[in-house]
Structures are given as structure tokens and as C-alpha cells.
């Protein structure tokens, strides 16, 4: 198992390096100008000077290698320094800086991570917790009223876009009823009962909307997978042996049906960290998704490059985790 993991990790290094270069190339080819958003009163010479100062005039390979050096060498060293308090190498080494804010990209991401994890992460967990029982019961009582209701709600979750649903709930619960705030306050720190309630109040609308979407997706997978398994011979065997219905459904069918669903769930996690761009925008959560979209709009290449690369890392990592989970759920699969 361990050798398998190490081998997979070693394989992913060249893959990730190739991905990082591919991202860099794509960004470079896209028509893009970080000075395009400046006021028109700023003359062309100043813009040219600024592009020069940002290093845009250097050859592609030089810029790529600089990014690699900053990201793969300087950033981990800085992290080690912060972690241990010891100093490693030159303390003034250059980090990956955002063009728009001139701040280290890693710090920007660290600032955005808490709200993304709180809102998007929680909604994913909640979505899974709702989806699994719903999927299992809908399949078990296929064509029953619960199945129809579940299908109806997941169709809504699937098909009504969050930019519509988000505005609808804001208009109802923030504007008309005044129950919840329409703007997410990232400066709120939970220190006691009151601030915890404030945190819950500002999270409830975005979390509900995202959880609905996630639950809709996962419950459909779970239901389909259950339906497939319910008619297998081993289910009849279990029943014939006199196992109780809950045991048949939960211990036998559900466990086997989870296999494909685990892949779906594991591969969905990187998307959680990538943030929910539209929902974050609507509720002004300013998480990772908002950082990505605003950086794309302002042509802030270092941020886009770093974020996209981190997403690639996560996807590779969670693919591996999904494979390991397979082995744990299904004893027939062995990696040794």
C-alpha cells in the first residue's frame, strides 16, 4: 500500500510540472494586459513602464523559471521559517507577488481560505450527509412518494442556477424578512455565543444553496448505484440467510453502492477548495473563487497561475485518495 502511494506520488511530479508549464503557456498566449483596467488618463509610456516593471518584457522561459524558483523554492523556505522561527537562507528572497495587490500570493490565498472552507466546505459536508440517506431510501422505495419528492427537489437543485436562487433567497430573507445579512463579513471572529450566532446567520443562505446543489448531484449518483446493486444475487442471498432488512440495505447494498459515489465525492473536493465562484460573488464572501475570478478580470497572472496550479495539485492528490478509499471499501481491490 505504502509503496503504491509513493509510486503514484512520484509519478505525479512530472505530471504536475508539465501542467504548470502548460498553464503558463496558455496564460501567455491569451490576450491579456494588467494595465487595461487603469484609468484612461494614464499615458501609454507609463503603461509600458509598468509592464516592464512587472517583468512582462522578459522571455517566456525566464518568467516561467522565475515563477518555479519563487514557488517551489522560496515559498516552502518561507513557510519553514515561519513554522520553526529559524532562518533559512536569504530572508529578502522574492516571493510570488500578485500584480494587483503587490502582496504575496500565498498570503492572499491564506486570507481567503477560512471563509471558503467554512461556507463551501460545510455545504459539501452537509450535502453529502443529506444525499446519502436520501439516495439510499429513494432507491429502496423506488417510485414511492419519497422517491418522487427527492427527485423533484434534486431536479430543482440541479437545474435552477445559483445566481438565480441566490438572489431569490436574498430578496426574501435579507430584504423582505430581514432575517439574514446579504453581505458576508470576513472580519467576524467567533469569540462567544453571540458571534457564533452571527457567523451562523451569515452562513445559512450560501450554505443552504450550495448544499442543495451538492446534495442533488450526489443523491442522484447514490440512488442510481443503489438501484443497480439492489437486484444483484448477493442481496437475495443475504435475505435468504435471514438478515434483517436494515442490515441487507445498509451493510450489504449501501456499502457496495458507495464505491462509485466515493469517487464522485473525492473528485468533488478540489472543487470545494476552488470555491463556488458564483455563490461567493452573490453573497460577497470573497473566498478563493472570488480571488480567482477577480484576478482573471484584472489580468493578474501570478495569482491565476498559482491558484490554477494548486487546483491541479489537489485534483492529482484526491484522485490518489479516491483510489485508496476504493481499497478500503472493497477488499477485492489490493494495491500490493
Amino acid at each position: 500500500m505504502l509503496t503504491y502511494c509513493l509510486r503514484r506520488l512520484a509519478f505525479s511530479v512530472p505530471v504536475l510540472i508539465f501542467i504548470s508549464f502548460a498553464i503558463f503557456l496558455l496564460m501567455d498566449m491569451a490576450p491579456n494586459d494588467p494595465t487595461a483596467n487603469l484609468p484612461m488618463s494614464i499615458p501609454a509610456e507609463t503603461r509600458a513602464q509598468l509592464r516592464e516593471a512587472l517583468g512582462m518584457g522578459d522571455p517566456l522561459v525566464a518568467r516561467y523559471l522565475l515563477w518555479c524558483k519563487q514557488f517551489f523554492i522560496h515559498e516552502p523556505l518561507n513557510w519553514l521559517t515561519d513554522l520553526t522561527g529559524l532562518s533559512f537562507g536569504d530572508p529578502d528572497r522574492l516571493r510570488v507577488l500578485s500584480w494587483a495587490s503587490r502582496a504575496p500570493v500565498v498570503e492572499l490565498i491564506a486570507e481567503r481560505l477560512p471563509q471558503t472552507l467554512w461556507v463551501v466546505g460545510l455545504s459539501y459536508l452537509l450535502g453529502i450527509l443529506i444525499a446519502l440517506p436520501v439516495g439510499i431510501y429513494s432507491a429502496y422505495r423506488q417510485h414511492g412518494w419519497f422517491d418522487h419528492l427527492g427527485s423533484f427537489i434534486s431536479m430543482i437543485g440541479y437545474s435552477v442556477p445559483s445566481f438565480f436562487l441566490g438572489v431569490v433567497v436574498i430578496v426574501i430573507f435579507a430584504v423582505k424578512l430581514n432575517w439574514f445579512p446579504s453581505v458576508y463579513d470576513t472580519t467576524l471572529t467567533v469569540t462567544g455565543w453571540d458571534s457564533l450566532m452571527d457567523q451562523l446567520r451569515q452562513m445559512i443562505m450560501p450554505v443552504t444553496i450550495l448544499a442543495l446543489y451538492n446534495a442533488a448531484q450526489i443523491s442522484r449518483f447514490m440512488r442510481a448505484s443503489m438501484l443497480e446493486n439492489l437486484h444483484h444475487d448477493y442481496v437475495r442471498t443475504a435475505r435468504a440467510k435471514g438478515a434483517s432488512e436494515p442490515r441487507v440495505v445498509l451493510a450489504h447494498v449501501a456499502r457496495n453502492s458507495l464505491l462509485p459515489v466515493v469517487t464522485v465525492i473525492a473528485l468533488g473536493v478540489p472543487q470545494v477548495l476552488a470555491g463556488a465562484i458564483i455563490t461567493e460573488q452573490i453573497f460577497k464572501i470573497n473566498g478563493i473563487g472570488e480571488l480567482l475570478i477577480s484576478s482573471i478580470q484584472s489580468g493578474d497572472l501570478p495569482v491565476v497561475q498559482t491558484l490554477t496550479f494548486l487546483f491541479a495539485v489537489l485534483i492529482v492528490l484526491f484522485n490518489l485518495l479516491a483510489d485508496i478509499a476504493y481499497g478500503l471499501l472493497d477488499p477485492r481491490i489490493s494495491y500490493d
Binding site: N32, D33, T35, A36, G299
Partner: peptide, 14 residues
Amino acid sequence: APAVFFGGDQSSPD
């Protein structure tokens, strides 16, 4: 797109 229209990309015709 504004980033192209107002941008100074020499290679863009737009």
C-alpha cells in the same frame, strides 16, 4: 472584452 479592448496587446487586432 474590456481587458482586450482597453489593453495594449500589440498582437490583438481588437
